[in-house]
Amino acid sequence: MTATVFLVVSVFLACVVEAVEALTIVLAVGTTRGWRSTLQGMAAGLALLAVIVATLGPALTVIPLQALRLVVGALLLIFGLGWLRKAILRASGFKALHDEAAIYARRIGEARDAERTGGRLVSDGYAFTLAFKGVLLEGLEVAFIVVTFGANQGSIPLAVLGAVLAVMVVTVTGILVRAPLARVPENTMKFAVGIMLTSFGIFWAAEGAGVAWPGGDVALLGVLGYVVIIAVGAVGVLRSVHRRYEPAGSTGSRSVAGD
């Protein structure tokens, strides 16, 4: 039960983060270049993602559970530590915070300057391509999380549900406000997702290697607490180092748009 709850929450948060970034691209291109080609590109990206999930999901279920957990755990550690590393550097001031409003303004400028080329089916190739790439690239990481989490827990539909809910929330909100969701605490959410992915990676990789966790899935809470302590401690140490060596009068990198 504990792992199932964390599965849905992790997939939901990860998908919200990526959906917000994809929404920024789609909004910038759509409002600047027109919506027909933009929506066509977005639909094509979503369709390809659906095919990837539908293809990889059943393929993973034929792998023995212990081997699956070892492989999935190792891969999640790679993804999770990557997210967590960036989140720690942002929180400590060594890396610029992700600024969706600044990214949106940059995308608007790029879209206005690009040439308009197209054909009969797609009137604006630039808008189609950018929307397609934005949705696909931002969604691939989430697709991987959905497939691996779902296959490992034996509940791909549950993982897909968390992803669909996140996409619906972000899409509806974006349609209502018609602006990038700059107020979404994206940096905090990336920190949380990094912690969750890392915790799941440790837990499942250890299980796949033959470790019997005391208390079963409840031990995941202990792993989660351990990762939180290490991550928060790393932020504290790096923040003090950053303040010590930051040039006088410098504002650091905290207000600059980051990826």
Rank of each mutant, 00 (worst) to 15 (best):
E100R: 00
L197S: 03
R112L: 14
R33C: 01
T251M: 14
A179H: 10
G150W: 04
G109D: 14
I63W: 07
T198H: 05
G93M: 13
G134E: 00
L39Y: 07
V71A: 15
S37K: 00
D124S: 00
L75D: 09
V164Q: 10
N187H: 01
L140V: 02
F191Q: 10
P58S: 01
G210S: 15
F200S: 13
V184F: 11
A206T: 11
V169H: 10
W204Q: 15
M1S: 08
A59R: 11
G150H: 01
R90M: 10
E141D: 00
R112V: 12
V16L: 15
P247G: 01
A127H: 01
F132E: 06
L13N: 13
G174P: 09
G57V: 03
L70W: 03
L158D: 00
L220T: 01
L81H: 02
A234C: 14
A59L: 14
A44M: 08
S253R: 14
L97W: 05
M1W: 06
T117G: 07
G119Q: 03
F6D: 08
G216V: 02
F12Q: 01
T24E: 11
V237M: 11
G109A: 15
A74M: 04
L136M: 02
F203Q: 11
G73D: 00
M42E: 03
M196P: 02
L75Y: 13
I25V: 12
A87V: 01
A231C: 02
A43L: 15
L97G: 07
A179V: 01
A3F: 08
G93I: 11
L46T: 03
V169P: 10
A219T: 13
T38D: 00
L224K: 05
A91L: 06
E18S: 10
V184H: 10
G216T: 04
G162C: 05
F203R: 15
F191G: 11
I145F: 05
V164F: 13
A54D: 09
A166P: 10
A101T: 08
T2K: 07
G139H: 01
I230D: 04
L97M: 09
A131N: 06
V72C: 09
A87W: 02
A143N: 00
P64Q: 06
G34F: 02
N152D: 09
V62N: 07
S199R: 14
A22T: 04
L121F: 06
G249H: 00
V218I: 12
D99Q: 11
A74H: 05
A179P: 07
L49N: 12
L48N: 04
T171P: 06
R243D: 08
V122N: 07
A67K: 07
L97S: 07
A19I: 05
T188D: 12
L76A: 12
V16C: 15
S240H: 07
S10Y: 00
V218Y: 11
D124L: 00
Q66F: 12
L60C: 06
T173W: 12
E100W: 02
V9A: 14
G162K: 02
G139W: 00
E246W: 12
T31Q: 13
